[in-house]
Amino acid sequence: MIPRDPGADHLDDVLSAYLDDELAPAARHEAEAHLAACAGCRAELDEVSAARRAIRILPVHAARRPLVGTESGGLPGTPGVPRPPSRRRAVWALAAAVAAAIAFLLPRDPEVAPSLPSLADSHAARASITGDPLTQLAPIAVPVRFGP
C-alpha cells in the first residue's frame, strides 16, 4: 500500500484528471503544490501513470477474419480478401431469391418437445452395452426424472 498521511486530504482521482489534462489552470496549480509536498500522492501518481501508459501503448488489435460474411462460413481464409462488390451483391440477391422460393415450398417445420427422460434412457441403455453396465444402468432405475 502507498504510505501516506492518513489525516490529510489527498488528491485521489484528481490525479487522473491531472494526468489527462482535465484540470482547470487553478486546480492544476493546487494539485502540483500538493504533489510537491506529499510523497504518498507522488507515489500514487506514478502507479496510476504507469497503468495509463500501459493502456495507451497497446497496439491496435486487428480482426482475424473479415467483419462481413455469412455465419455459415462466408469468405474462407485470410481476412480482407476483397471481391468486387457488384458481383457479391448479385450473388447474394440471387441466393436470397432462391432461398425465398424454397422456403415457400417447404412445409413449415413442426414444433417439437423432445422427451428428455426417454432420450436419456435410450442413451444410458446404449452406453451400458460398451461401458460398465452397473454404473450406466443404475441411474435409469432412479425414480426421479430430470430436475430444473
Binding site: 485521489d12 482521482d13 484528481v14 490525479l15 487522473s16 484528471a17 489527462d20 482535465e22 500514487e44 502507479e47 496510476v48 504507469a50 497503468a51 495509463r52 500501459a54 493502456i55
Partner: peptide
C-alpha cells in the same frame, strides 16, 4: 475527453473521473 465520455455513457463527469482513476489503480 471526460466530457465526451460522460456524454457517451450518460453519467456525470465526476463519476467518469472516479471510474477512470479506480480502474487504473486496479490495473496497476
Amino acid at each position: 475527453s471526460y466530457e465526451e465520455i460522460a456524454d457517451a455513457i450518460a453519467v456525470p463527469v465526476g463519476t467518469v473521473r472516479s471510474r477512470i482513476h479506480r480502474g487504473r489503480r486496479l490495473l496497476r
